[in-house]
Simulated scan of single mutants.
Amino acid sequence: MALSAIDPRSALVLIDLQKGITSIPGAPFTPAEVIERGTRLATEFRLRGLPVVLVNVKATPPGRTEISLRSGTAAPDWTDLVPELDVQDTDIRVTKQSWGAFYGTSLDLELRRRGVTQIVLGGIATRFGVESTARAAHEHGYHVTVAVDACTDISADGHRASVEGVFPRLGETATTDEILATLP
């Protein structure tokens, strides 16, 4: 569904724009393009006094062993958010251990404390962290808007499948420029 409005009680949620993940090639957009668009969104949300949530992934869920960052093979700064985001003291920081940003984190509590009714999503990877977070946000009763050019995947086909097949059923989709033009 196309963008109709941005609630005056919206928050921006950016998923996994961290050094270890943004070093992986993306499609259809490069990580650099996603970072640039996410940074533009974050700047405008901050200027309007709207919450900015920066999510990183630190490890796999406890008990999962098939993929692990605990093995010590990841670079020491793998989980660090990219400097282009210009993290502010007012930003909400969430560290997750699974694909989605809601499960096992304080995200819902942080948003509800601020009266947030809608989340605008971007990040990496479209089919994993972004889609999982969008699904959970929908299940938690938030209005969901995905900035379709502020997220990317390891596969252009995978990105397109989420953008065309999943996100319209969870909420609205728009480009970064459309969202910026609609901000209250």
Rank of each mutant, 00 (worst) to 15 (best):
A75L: 02
Q97D: 09
W78K: 03
I21K: 00
I119K: 01
T133I: 03
E44Q: 11
P28W: 08
V130S: 07
R37I: 00
H140D: 05
Q118C: 13
P76L: 05
G129W: 11
L47Y: 09
A125C: 12
I15E: 09
R37G: 09
H138R: 06
T105R: 06
D80V: 10
D86F: 10
L81D: 05
A137S: 10
R40G: 01
L50E: 14
D108V: 13
R37M: 06
E33Y: 08
L17F: 08
R112K: 12
A125Q: 14
A74W: 05
T60D: 07
N56L: 11
T43S: 14
A125E: 13
L47C: 09
T39W: 01
L41K: 03
V52F: 04
T60K: 07
E139C: 10
T30C: 09
Q118M: 15
P83T: 04
I24N: 05
L50M: 15
F128Q: 15
T39S: 07
K96M: 14
L54Y: 00
Q18R: 13
V130H: 11
G122H: 05
Y142C: 10
T22L: 06
K58A: 15
T65F: 15
R64N: 11
I24V: 06
V52S: 05
G141H: 10
G141R: 05
V82D: 12
Q118F: 13
H138G: 04
A101Y: 15
P76W: 13
R113V: 12
I35K: 02
Q18C: 06
K96H: 04
F128T: 09
P28C: 05
F29K: 00
D86E: 11
A32F: 06
P28A: 00
T39G: 02
G72A: 14
Q118I: 12
G72L: 14
L111A: 09
Q97P: 02
L69Q: 07
G63P: 11
A74K: 03
T90N: 09
I35H: 02
D80N: 13
F128S: 12
G100A: 12
R64Q: 12
R114L: 12
K19D: 03
P51K: 02
R40T: 01
T95D: 15
V130T: 08
Q18G: 10
A137E: 05
G38L: 00
S68R: 02
V55T: 07
G123T: 03
E36M: 01
N56R: 15
E66A: 11
A137T: 04
G72H: 13
G63V: 04
I67E: 08
I92Q: 05
F45E: 10
A42Y: 07
